[in-house]
Structure formats: structure tokens, C-alpha cells
Design a protein around this nucleic acid. Sequence first.
RNA 1: GCCUCGGUAACUCAGUGGUAGAGUGAUUGACUUGUAAUCAAUUAGUCGAGGGUUCAAUUCCCUUCCGAGGCUCCA
Length: 561
Amino acid sequence: MAGAVVDLFPDAKPTIGPSIDPVGFYYDFFVENPFTQEDIDKIQKRVEEVIQKNSEFVRDEMSLADAIKYYEEVDKNKFKVEILKETEADKVSFYSHGEGNFKDLCRGPHVPFAGRIKAIKILNASSAFWRADADRESLQRVYGVALSNEKQLKKHLAMLEEAKKRDHRILGSQLDLFGTADEWGPGMPLIYPKGAIILDTLKDFWKKEHRKAGYELVQTPHIYKENVWQTSGHTEYFLEHMFPVDMRGEQWYVKPMNCPGHMMIYNRKAYSYRELPVRFGEMGTVYRYELSGALHGLFRVRSITQDDAHIFMLPDQLEDEIVRVIELVEHFYKVFGFQKWEYFLSTKPEKSIGTDEGWEHATNSLMRAIERTDLPYKVKEGDGAFYGPKIDVDVMDALGRKWQLATIQVDFNLPERFDTNYIGEDSQKHKPFVIHRTIFGAMERFLAIIVENYAGKMPVWLSPVQVEVIPITDQHIEYAKSVVEDLLKVGIRAEADLSGDRMEYKIRQATINKVPYIINVGDKEIESKTIAVRSRGNKVEFEVKIPDFIDKVIKQIENYE
RNA sequence: GCCUCGGUAACUCAGUGGUAGAGUGAUUGACUUGUAAUCAAUUAGUCGAGGGUUCAAUUCCCUUCCGAGGCUCCA
């Protein structure tokens, strides 16, 4: 593909072009003018021509010095020179094909003939920064997929289509869950009644499980005076992300994090070492001024409800506490039917605070904790926060996409800043270890993820409307109402569709709204005191006794199905 | 914040240098129906905002806001 681009745009300077997981590739070019849709179509055509010709890819080797010389003098490509200067190999390989005089630095291996690529699609172009650094040159990235046959390509494109259909922004408006608009502020979603039911159900679940796990639930204000943020260091390090509040000359800030509140609650009294660990949990909504280009539906918003918790403990309790958090994570994710999730341990970065002993103890405790759970994990060297090491969890959804949800972070910074202590056995003050953790990550984003993961078909326990009751004619309205009442009484979310439309139309509407159970009632049902139940998959069961149906649904709700 | 592409009715979208249309929805009426769309009528918009060119701008140009796809960042 790079060859095609250079054929069409002689001034384009290829930089790097790796393949991406699980399929596809991209290539970054330095060009004067960004690619347009027309350019993409041209590139697609040219690529197809190259494949048609089925020319051979030839591998050449060159010494590193010659290669640098080639890119400095012949090809004048400073990006390649930069890459080459960083390699340690003394010989590098080039690939070229019979068409044109394009050759490219490539470690290989490579397909032997262009014709081996049976199906290719150049998808889109966008900008990217050289070396992912916003201060460096802006490049044009061209995305594409190549597969060994047309059928697989179609399948892949169908998957992309499916992902589009599952887009929570589309499902969100179809299912009347939430809305975003610039009128009231970008990144500030309004959660509509049906979306709120899902969120509330998730929150109730979260609260129940956290109380069981020994957490104390707290509540903290949304804004504080400036001095709190000076103590926490936010005004120094996080100011550009914070919403300021000018209280008639006095400076306040809306909270971008829940931590300060929890620290202050801890500091209200002198905790004894016998009382630790102390665990504070809160569904706290924080506000962060995210860059406008980063906003995306409910995935990236500026009003963020975190399922936050801070745990204060003795140093030797750290390992046990991490194990407990991991167990909670495992329990939560199993409920939502995710296929797979991965743990990452991030260690000390270059810039950090805290003592070496502290880092070592904390990092080892995190590592030992994961190892005790027998879960596989990977280490990200130097990727920790400046205030402590952390464990992140990436969850894979039904379409194989990964989302970072849970994070468990040790914090050396806040206990110092807030002068947080416990009284030890020696009746002296000591600094507790503090971890900050979330499991869902952010409720808005978690809602978006499960909407996409379930393709809008929420399991019964999360469905905003669990049962839609549809009378066949107006003569059956009274019975429909009484059925709804029976269901509401036992806590099932039911409603009757009493509009003037035909029954078939109502069934269609309820199906589109992805209601798990659609109940029809007519003369037959009234006579036998039963209901006709249509469940997902369009199976209809007649003469179902109401108590039997209630038992079944209640059981599903209790089992988080 | 950076690059490309967009912004027309509640939603999806068509369209034009002479102030706009379709489908869906919503409302009303008729129909009273047995498992995925009954029929009819009504309702529809500062054509994102500001400025410029023009006799005339929704259309062309500029600015700005917002959105989409990426990058960066991140829960």
C-alpha cells in the first residue's frame, strides 16, 4: 500500500506501518496535504492494480550505515533515519516489488507475491502524531484490512457494520436511554428515565456487594474551597481539567476526583491500628474538563460518576486487601458475562514521589496479590502513576474490543498531603497505605459498554421495562391493567401499552425496544386467568399461569440473568 | 488541543444562488383486530451561529460552535 501512496503522491514520506490486532494495518505518511476521501479511493484502486500484476516482493539487505545514507541523501526521509539511528542491528532489510521503484524498510517477513493478497480494503485516513507525540509532526495515517479471501473480508466488514449498529449512541437514542447535546454542554449527558433505571440497578448491585465486602458508604460534596485542592495538589497538577467556581470573589472548584473528601472523612478522628483497614466507598460524580476532541458518547464525558473507594490500611495488610479487591472484580465481571479480562501491573515511572522502600513494598504486594489469585497478568514497566504502582484490568467485550475498567492504585501522595495517620501499637502516629480503586471505572462508560456488549438486549434484571403487557382489543384493557399491577406489586418493571394501535404494531414496538417479555391478553386469557408470553427469540407460550411467570422472572432478577 | 469530513423537521436523510422536501415519529379520528408496521387527516424547520460577496445566500467565501473518524490524553 505504501508503494501505491508513493506512486500517487511522490512527496509522501512513509514513516511506519505496522499491522494491528486482530486484523488490519495502517501506515503513517508525512504529506503536505491531508488525504481526502477521493485520495482513499485512488489509493484503493492503485493497490488493486499492484495486486493484479502479482509482482514479486524482493528482499534486499543493506548495512545500517548505507541505509541511513540512502534515506538521508536519496529518499530524504528523516523519519526513517530516526528509526534507523535507534536500531541496534548492523544490517537492515528492504522490500521492493516490480512495480515502480518503491522500496521500503521492513523487518519482514513479507508475502512473496502481491497476488497472494486476495482481498484488501483501504478504510479511512486520519491524522496521527509522529511518535505519538502531540508536539511532533502531524502525519496522515491510512487504515486498511487485508485478508486471504474475499469471503473473510466481507465477514470482517460485516463485523465493523455490526459494531456500528451496536454503537451505544445509536442504541441510546433508540432505546431512549440518554442524550448529549451542545445546548447544555458537551460531554454532559442527560440520563433519561430508562437509562437511569439501568444505572440505578447497577448502583444498587454495587452498594449491596460493597457492604457485604466490608465497605462503609459515604457521601461527599461536589465543590470545595480552593484550599482543599491546594492541599491535595490538584490546583498544581490538574488545574486545566477542573471547572472553577467563582463564588463572588472567593475561588471554589468542582471536584475532579473524590479522594480529598474521603481523606477528610478519614481525618475526622484518630484511627487506631486495630480499626484498619477502613474502606470508604462512594458513587461520586466528578467533573473534568476533557479536551473536546476526546469526548465520545458516554465513553468519554465530562461528568463522570465513579464507583470509587479508598482503603486505608497497615502496610502488611496491603497484599490481603488487593486480593480482596481482585476477588470483587472477578465477581462483578462474571455477572455481566464478559468473555475475558486481563490484569496489568504498572511499576514505578521515571518521575515519582515516595520512598524506594515504599515503592518496592507496594509493588511486591501487588504482584504477590495477583499471584495468589492464580490469574495471569502482564507487567507494564514504568507505567505507574507518579504517586504509586497500580493494577489495571482490561475487559474484552462481545466484539473482541478491549476496555480498561477497573484500576487499583496505591497512593503515596495523599496521605502525606492530608497528613493522614493512624495510631500504632507504639501509640505513635504512622502513615497508612492508601489505595484508590474502581471496578466499573465510570458508570457512564460502563453503561455504554454493556449496551454495546449486549447489543441493547439487556438481561432481564437490567432491562428498563421487563414486561410489556398488550391487550388485544380495548375490551381487554382492564385485565391488562390488573396483570401489570400484579407484576408491579412483586417488583417487576411492567407496563401496559394502551395506545390506539393494532396489537401487531405494539408487539413490533416492544420487540424493537428489546423488552424481554411481551405479554398478550385477550378473551382466552381472561377466561382461563392466564397470559400468553412471548420471550426473546419470538417464542410464544400460551396459557401461562401468572404466579408461575412471576416466579420465573423474580428468579432471573435474583440471579442477575 | 491537532488533522479530515460533516451540521437541513423530534429521528434518518434528499435538495437548490430566487426563504425548502421524503420516510419514520408525534397528535387526532375511524377501525376492535390473536402474535413484528390498519387507514386517513394534522403537525412539522432562524436550513448550527456570526460576518462577508450578491439585487437576492440554506446554497459561494471567512470565522466560530458542535458532531463523526482518528491522534494525544484518560475512568
